[in-house]
Simulated scan of single mutants.
Amino acid sequence: MSELAQSVSLPSANPSEARARDLDAALRAASPPEIIAAALREVGRDRLALVSSFGTESAALLKVMADVDPAIPVVFLDTGWLFAETLAYRDTLIDQLGLTDVRSIKPLDADLDRDDPARDLWFSDPDQCCFIRKVEPLRRALAPFEAWLNGRKRFQGGARAEIPVVEADGVRMKFNPFANVSREDINAIYALGKLPPHPLLASGFLSVGCMPCTSRAESDQDTRSGRWQGRGKTECGIHTMKTS
């Protein structure tokens, strides 16, 4: 907002921005279950979704969510390039955690045929590949919802180092229940919940996305250092582009 707009106290063009700031201040020191419960109270189950990649740390957030309400809708972006191990892990966690509303969303065939007929766009233009396989499908998937939950953590570094607990994402709010957690906290959730690790974690994959753009990484490296190696790219776009 400009200094002029501030001086005359013009209302925010997006009410979710002001509400997100208020909630972020109120929930700054809240635990992950408290943040998820607050999101439920704010918009209701039918208007809240959790977006999960079912990656190497996803089970922790899904476990916390399931303990609060296992019927919260879960959006899973099936890009067409996922590891078979990730798809199997998704099914394992659905059964173990008793998740009742997991929605697998795929890219549109028309977008793939138009922009990636040879299915090699990941190599020539990874940003556009992520857009048609993740950003656009997520926009469609989130259309019915007023708020969404995700598993980003500050300790993952990069663009995630300063994320708030609650933020505005276009017309809806984005809750980051794990913003404040540590790696030790994540490990404790896995241990207490007897959660299985992602099958590829033992093979050196610290963060798992699409097959062409995921590499092994050293254990002392940044968690996401194995994503888009050598490209100067650290995010797929769903957290850097507005979803509405």
Rank of each mutant, 00 (worst) to 15 (best):
S2E: 09
E3T: 08
Q6H: 13
S7Y: 04
S7N: 12
V8T: 14
L10C: 13
S12C: 09
P15A: 08
E17N: 10
R19M: 05
R19N: 05
R19D: 09
A20Y: 09
R21H: 12
A26F: 00
R28F: 10
A29W: 03
A29T: 15
A30P: 12
S31F: 06
P32N: 07
I35M: 05
L40H: 11
E42R: 08
D46S: 13
A49K: 09
V51T: 11
S52P: 03
S53M: 03
T56A: 15
E57A: 08
S58H: 01
K63R: 14
K63P: 02
M65G: 09
A66H: 04
D67Y: 04
D67S: 15
D67V: 01
D69V: 02
P70I: 02
A71T: 15
A71P: 03
I72N: 03
V74H: 00
V75A: 09
F76N: 10
L77P: 04
L77D: 04
T79C: 07
G80F: 02
G80D: 00
G80R: 02
W81S: 12
L82N: 10
F83G: 07
A84M: 01
E85F: 11
T86Q: 08
L87K: 10
Y89H: 15
L93T: 08
D95M: 03
Q96L: 15
L97W: 08
L97N: 13
G98C: 12
G98L: 13
L99Q: 10
L99R: 11
R103G: 08
R103V: 11
I105T: 12
P107C: 06
P107K: 04
D109M: 10
A110G: 04
D113G: 01
D113T: 14
D115N: 13
D116F: 03
D116I: 10
R119F: 08
R119G: 07
L121D: 00
W122I: 00
F123Q: 14
S124C: 01
D127H: 12
F131R: 14
F131L: 07
K134E: 05
E136C: 00
P137R: 06
P137N: 05
R139F: 03
A147M: 09
W148A: 05
W148I: 04
N150L: 02
N150P: 00
K153I: 03
R154M: 03
R154E: 00
F155M: 06
G157A: 10
A159E: 10
I163K: 05
P164H: 01
V166C: 06
E167K: 11
A168I: 01
D169P: 14
G170W: 07
G170A: 10
F175I: 12
F178K: 03
N180P: 08
V181Q: 14
V181F: 14
N187E: 15
A188F: 01
I189R: 12
I189M: 12
L192E: 15
L192S: 15
K194F: 02
K194G: 14
K194E: 14
L195C: 12
H198P: 01
L200V: 05
L200A: 11
L201D: 00
S203P: 00
S203D: 15
F205C: 09
L206A: 14
V208P: 06
G209P: 07
M211K: 14
T214P: 11
T214M: 11
D220L: 12
Q221W: 05
Q221N: 13
D222V: 01
D222W: 02
S225Q: 10
W228D: 01
G232L: 08
K233V: 15
C236G: 12
H239F: 09
